[in-house]
Every structure is written in C-alpha cells, then in structure tokens.
Design a protein around this nucleic acid. Structure first.
Lengths: 227, 227
DNA sequence: GGCATTAGTCAACATACGTTCACTTTTATA
DNA sequence: TATAAAAGTGAACGTATGTTGACTAATGCC
C-alpha cells in the first residue's frame, strides 16, 4: 500500500465535513468506529491506520490517547452510555401489557440509530482485548442485576428467590443481546427481514414470559415424576 | 522481543513431546489454538508468531497452508466437528424426562473436554474475520433447523407452525451458546462456580420448556386483554 | 540403495508498525 | 497584541511482518 502526502488533508477534510466534529479526539474515535465496521476486531486496528484515516501524522495520536487500547476503552465507554440511555428509555414505559413489544421496539430502533456502538459491544464482548471485554461484561452483569431487582418488585414475582430472579433476568438479557446482533446482521434497507427479526424476538420473549407463572409448581412436579 | 536460533528446536521439541502429534500441520493448528487461549482474536495472530511457537522457520508455513486464514478455516472446521459430535451424543438420550439435564451435562463436559475448540467458536462467531464468522453462523443455523425439525416430531409440538418451531429452537440454541460461554469463563478448578452455572442453565431451559404448553392459547389471550 | 518428492532452512526484500524527538503552527488567554 | 500552552509536523529509530527463491535434509517408494 502507498500513501501520498496529499491524501492526508483530504481525509482530514472528510472527517471535518458533515458536521461530525471539529475536534480531533472525536475524529479519532469516529475513524476507529468506521474501521471496525469493516468486520475486523479491535485488536487488529493499528495506530497508524487510525491516524491515516483521520488525516494526521501518527505522532499526533499521542496528544489524545496514550495507547490504542485507551482509545478502545473510550469507545467502549461511549457505547455503553448509549446502551444505558436505551435501557432507561425502555424502562420509562410502564404499561405492563405492552412491555415486551415496547422493549423490543426501543431496542431495535436504538440499534438502528447507533449500529456502530452496538457492533463494538457485541464484538468486543466476546473476543479481543481482555480489558475491553472485562468492562463490557461487568456493565452487562450490572444491567442484569437491575433487571432482576425490577422483576422482584412485580406482584407475580415478589416471592421468587434471588437466584431465580437472576435466572430470568439473565435469560432475557441473553435473548436481547442475541436480538441486537440479529438486527445488526439485517441489511440496512431490508424492511421485511427486519420485521421478521422483530416478530421472532417478541415471540421469544413472550414464550419466556409464559413460563413464568408456571415456575413455582413445576420443579416439584418434575421432581415427583422423575426423582 | 528477541529470538535466538536455539529456541527453535526447543519449541519444536515442546510440541512434539506429550504425544500431541508428530505432524507439523497438526503442530501449527495446536500452536494457533494455544495462542488464542491468550484472549486475542484470530485476526490478531501473525504467521511468524505461529511458526515461532512451533519451532520452524516462517517460510515452512507455506508447506501446509496458503494463508493464516486457511489455517483459521481448518481450525473452525475442526471445532465444528467436535461440536457436531457433541450434539449427536446429546441426541442419543431419548428419555424425555431427563432431556434437559442430560443436554446440559453433555454440553458442559464437552466444553470442559475441548475448551480451546469452543473458545474458537464463541470468539470467531461474533468478531474477526468475516469468512470464519460466516462459516460458524451457517453451521449453527443448520443446527437450529435440525432442532426445529426434532421439535416438530414431538407430540406436544406437532401442530406448531414452522416459524414457531424455529423460534423455540433459536431460543434454546442461544441459551446453549450462552451457557457454553459461561462454562468457559469458570476458572478450571472451581467446582462450586461450575455447579452454579449448570444449575442456572438447567433452570433457564426448564423455564422455556414451561412456556411451551401455554403457547397456543396465550397469544390470543394476550390479544383479547389488550387489543 | 538410488531417487524423486516432500518438508524445512537461510537470507533477503519491501512494508508496516509503534515510539522518540526537536520543530513549527495554531489556539486561546491575559 | 503578546505569549504560553496545545496540537500537529517531519524525520528517524528499531523491530515485526508476509513473501520470495535457491538451497539442503529427510521420507518414502521402486
């Protein structure tokens, strides 16, 4: 690969255009986000690549981050913030009848609105740099706990053990994560495919919800029939 | 970092020892598998690193693979084979009363027996090189389909629509994947933590199963109470 | 035992990388 | 408007990477 000097100012202009920022730190984050869209994982990004995309010289990177890893952490934090915002929004709809549909809807539109952030989360949650993974998992675990607490306040569930509440919350979070990933896979224009994903998602969550009222009696029943 | 020549034969001996192989191709796969245990994702591995670990010169790599990517694909295929073997084993236990417990047990012991293979699957399924991801997702989708077919043959479910069967199968597979990842996270010795994971897993699957008999009537009921 | 094929070595190449330093330019503040 | 701080530049460094070609060593076959 070959890089001419004149390319730099051009790239710089590209990132300064479209009102995304006039702050270089921001531009670096944006560039990394864009490069990650290519499918690679974060630990395959190089410092020079990022600065090249922004249109600055490699050395200038250090004016903003100590490391590429530090940039990664900033990226994760940012992504987690949009995730938190989404969750808060989903919680504000208290209508228990429509809660599943509403949750799925806000999840889907949040993913559509910030695909790059959600992709970072979904990707770096599993593989790549341990520090990023750590941070993401910790945060998601804390969401799960909150959700379990929420459930514990519901009349139907207020006699459940803490472990069982954790259990449903975990199941639902897992399903949500999987749904978000499915939405990301849907090609941007394909409304039909997206609708199918949404329908599936709602059904899955509803199926889980249907099991809940049965929970109390069932384990005993199962135990009685096969000790 | 500094590499002396004498290190090579030593590394070579290390991989030839413990009866893992006397075939270099095998050694390359093993080395990659081991390097991935360090937490990095596959596209952050370098050719030279792998050959160094095996104790051969970089150029010799090309006698066995065209690319690092080709090695990756071989690794994925291998991992998928152990996954398939596990699924076959899980299917051979027809006792419907114990099916959940048995499935979880065989999953857990398969993961414990081949942690590196399962780690490859879980990691490269989400991030990294598109070709690997593709292959894994395709395979998992096909498992989901088979499972849906299995479900369709059950007396309780033989009147369900294809989409709904897909839906449960998808939910169960998702849960299983998550369980496998949880098992991988458990530190090797910690029997208590592992037991907790297993217990959670069984509960989650049982909860899903409890929703199944309710499915038929419920959507109509829900619709009636909130049209 | 000779001999072809296969596997591994050695040395070199062009590129890419992270990091450093002394430097100029830009920006904001007093 | 002068000036100090912050941001960006240019060049250089040592090191790592993928890939090449001509070579030697080992393996298995007639």
């Amino acid at each position: 690969m070959l890089h001419r000097k004149s390319d730099r100012k051009q790239a710089r202009a590209a990132y300064a255009r479209d009102g995304r920022m006039h702050d270089t730190r921001r531009a670096l984050l944006e560039a990394a986000l864009d490069l990650l869209e290519g499918g690679r994982s974060f630990d395959a990004l190089s410092l020079r690549e990022i600065t090249r995309a922004v249109g600055i010289v490699p050395a200038a990177f250090y004016r903003h981050f100590r490391d590429v890893e530090e940039l990664g952490l900033a990226l994760v934090d940012e992504s987690m913030t949009t995730l938190r915002r989404m969750i808060r929004e989903a919680r504000e709809v208290p209508d228990p009848q429509r809660i599943i549909r509403n949750s799925v809807d806000t999840l889907v539109s949040a993913v559509r609105a910030n695909p790059r952030h959600f992709r970072v989360i979904s990707r770096e949650m599993h593989g790549g740099m341990p520090t990023l993974r750590e941070r993401i998992r910790r945060e998601i675990a804390s969401f799960t706990n909150e959700l379990a607490l929420d459930f514990g306040r519901l009349p139907l569930l207020n006699r459940w053990s803490a472990e069982d509440l954790q259990m449903i919350a975990g199941l639902m979070v897992t399903a949500m994560v999987q749904i978000a990933e499915a939405v990301l896979e849907v090609p941007a224009g394909d409304a039909a495919a997206q609708a199918r994903v949404v329908r599936m998602a709602e059904k899955q969550l509803r199926l889980i919800a249907l099991g809940v009222p049965q929970w109390q009696s069932a384990p005993a029943g199962a135990k009685a029939s096969s000790p």
